[in-house]
Design a protein around this nucleic acid. Structure first.
Lengths: 106, 106
DNA sequence: CCAACTACTTGGTATTGTCAAGTACTAAAA
DNA sequence: TTTTAGTACTTGACAATACCAAGTAGTTGG
């Protein structure tokens, strides 16, 4: 999979995933992987960055299957940012799609 | 416009633009700008890279409106690469679009 | 007790786009 | 004639983000 296409989009996929319910890192790696190929070394730093930017709040919860899990919860700022990012993505993808389609029709 | 979204996609837009007819750099900046915001400092290095990778061949032609223009012509390898890149983009954009749509329907 | 799975961290690297500045040529306006 | 605007390309320093590899550590089952 083209690594460059993912730039910025992984952020949106992560934000959108957490929107519906709080999730922990490892779980997110698997969730995001259903949509696009991704590995831990990408997701964890991304979560840290989004937390530093106050789009996520975190809390620890013990697990019966391994070490405690760090859960990510979307803040109000996070919700707004997600909405904005989604709108930007839609517009971008539409523009590129329209360009390619228009070219094809000739 | 989100700068990250463009990664990899500008390459496709440039290749697709030149597919139909040979174009020179300055012209490409304007052509690509119709689809997504972009500036010279992005396009010229990209053209150089794609030329180094043998996806473009170039030739100079004089202009009545300024200095000579360097025209870019798509090679056979360039055509194949463009096709591949387009297929990858379509697949990627579809996957992301489907993910967002599916989430929205809940 | 060791392998497998879960869970997270970190450091180095690669790719690609941005910004800013510079060079240089032509044509038209002042 | 000098200046300005438009055309055309180049370069170097920088920023953002994804990848890879390796490491730490807890839990469970053979």
């Amino acid at each position: 999979m083209n690594a460059q296409f993912k730039k910025g989009v992984l952020e949106l996929i992560v934000l959108e995933s957490v929107r519906q319910r709080d999730m922990y890192g490892y779980e997110l790696v698997e969730e995001v992987s259903k949509v696009v190929d991704v590995n831990e070394g990408t997701i964890y730093p991304l979560l840290k960055r989004l937390t530093n930017e106050r789009y996520f709040e975190t809390y620890l919860r013990e697990s019966t299957e391994g070490p405690p899990r760090k859960y990510y919860h979307l803040t109000v700022a996070g919700i707004l940012y997600r909405d904005q990012l989604e709108a930007e993505w839609m517009e971008f993808a539409d523009r590129v799609g329209a360009f390619l389609k228009e070219r094809k029709e000739r």
